[in-house]
């Protein structure tokens, strides 16, 4: 009696598979339910960014560190407050970048 090989099993499994189902109106039924996709609107993102920037500005405008940083920046002096502020902004940007990449991976 011949032993049964992997190829025999593969061939038998393929034979036992009926193959693609005939369309029989299926595609037409699906297309009746397909609605035009809504285009992604960009204005909420733009408005949110501006609102965020404005809120940050309002909350930080009273801070002496922030004021010193800007004064140093405009005078071209790299003071400690300028470094701290720029470092904080860079760290937050990197955090946001990491978050965006993680979200993109999830999708």
């Amino acid at each position: 009696m011949n032993p049964v090989h992997d190829e025999d099993i593969d061939a038998l499994l393929r034979q036992s598979f009926d193959g693609p189902a005939p369309d029989a109106g299926f595609s037409d039924r699906v297309m009746q339910h397909v609605r035009p996709r809504r285009r992604a609107v960009s204005w909420p993102l733009v408005v949110s960014v501006f609102a965020g920037v404005l809120m940050c500005w309002l909350s930080l405008s009273g801070s002496p560190l922030w004021r010193a940083a800007w004064q140093g920046w405009f005078a071209g002096v790299w003071s400690a407050s300028t470094f701290v502020t720029l470092a904080a902004m860079a760290a937050l940007s990197l955090l946001a970048l990491g978050w965006t990449l993680a979200e993109a991976d999830d999708h």
């Binding site: 598979f17 693609p20 189902a21 005939p22 595609s27 297309m31 397909v34």
Partner: peptide
């Protein structure tokens, strides 16, 4: 274009 994709692949997905 999407309808063509549906027609091309519906058979195997349903199987």
């Amino acid at each position: 274009a999407f309808e063509q994709l549906v027609r091309r692949h519906q058979g195997m997905v349903r199987a």
